[in-house]
């Protein structure tokens, strides 16, 4: 009897294995958490140092227009031009990309049938995978001269940045929206057609409408990507930290100032801390985008 009891109380090989697996995954999770938390801590502490250690004004950072952190004796950290630039390219490229994404996605799911999808799906995946330097390079050789010729100015500026980002976010937005269109049940389409709707009426009165939460999520994802894109934008935007007066003169974004400035500053000094503050703004914005998609995800089904 006792033998049976001890045998039963002892852990089996399987349950020991189970426990070991659990331990390993816990360890990995812990490691990732550690990395994420230290990154967050680093960006936050360095980003806030501009205000607490270097005593720069918090409101000036968001409202002043001159960015010259190494100026003597009074350094200037007005990030407004970059913030405006970042939001400018992000919002404009999203507005431009949305109708194209809707049209492409609807074409793939509801119009072209299997054949069109078989062709378009790989194209879109390919577009997502092209490195951003390549996009920037193409932007520099094609988009900038094009903008210069058609809209005037130097060609460098928010407009060129918008065009490049448009091409970059379009595949992201499209493929996410395709997924949400596919999640709209077939029986909505049947119900609509059975009520005497044409295919087109069904698409815009039922399918697109039912998938609006999914569309918004897709667009916000695209915006998050546009907001965080550095290289390609930096190559076409002109990199002048002045408040943009129009769309065709050189401007800058948070990311472009970061990438251009990062090599020219010394760790621990104000010019370096000021860049960390820009990074902090980027981090907070990506958090906002994330929360937005979660919020929408909770509201809608598709």
């Amino acid at each position: 009897m006792d033998a049976v009891k001890t045998e039963l109380m002892k852990k089996s090989k399987a349950s020991r294995q189970d426990q070991r697996g659990k331990l390993i995954s816990l360890f990995c999770i812990f490691l990732i958490m550690l990395v994420v938390l230290s990154i967050l801590y680093m960006i936050t502490s360095k980003g806030l140092a501009t205000f607490f250690e270097n005593k720069m004004s918090f409101t000036d950072f968001f409202t002043k227009k001159v960015w010259n952190p190494s100026a003597k004796p009074q350094p200037l950290v007005g990030a407004l031009p970059m913030i405006v630039g970042s939001f400018g390219v992000t919002v404009l490229s999203a507005i431009l990309a949305a109708p194209f994404a809707i049209a492409t996605a609807v074409f793939m799911t509801d119009i072209s049938g299997k054949r069109g999808q078989a062709i378009l799906q790989p194209v879109i995946e390919l577009l997502v995978g092209i490195p951003s330097v390549v996009y920037g390079f193409i932007g520099l050789t094609v988009v900038v001269p094009f903008t210069r010729a058609v809209f005037g100015g130097t060609g460098f500026g928010i407009l060129s940045g918008t065009f490049v980002l448009f091409v970059m976010v379009l595949p992201t937005v499209t493929s996410m929206y395709v997924d949400s269109l596919k999640a709209v049940p077939r029986f909505y389409r049947e119900a609509s057609l059975a009520l005497g709707a044409t295919r087109w009426q069904t698409i815009y009165k039922v399918i697109i409408r039912a998938s609006i939460p999914g569309l918004l999520t897709a667009i916000i994802f695209g915006m998050a990507r546009a907001f965080g894109e550095a290289l390609a934008v930096q190559m076409v935007i002109g990199n002048a930290s002045i408040l943009p007066q129009d769309l065709v003169s050189p401007a800058s974004t948070l990311t472009s100032v970061l990438t251009t400035g990062i090599g020219n500053t010394v760790l621990g000094t104000l010019p370096n801390n000021a860049l960390w503050s820009l990074a902090l703004v980027l981090l907070l914005m990506s958090l906002v985008f994330n929360l937005l998609t979660r919020f929408i995800g909770k509201k809608g089904a598709f």
Partner: peptide, 10 residues
């Protein structure tokens, strides 16, 4: 036509 699964639009 009325279908097997209730299918009101959302």
């Amino acid at each position: 036509m009325v279908f097997q699964q209730p299918n009101p639009f959302p």
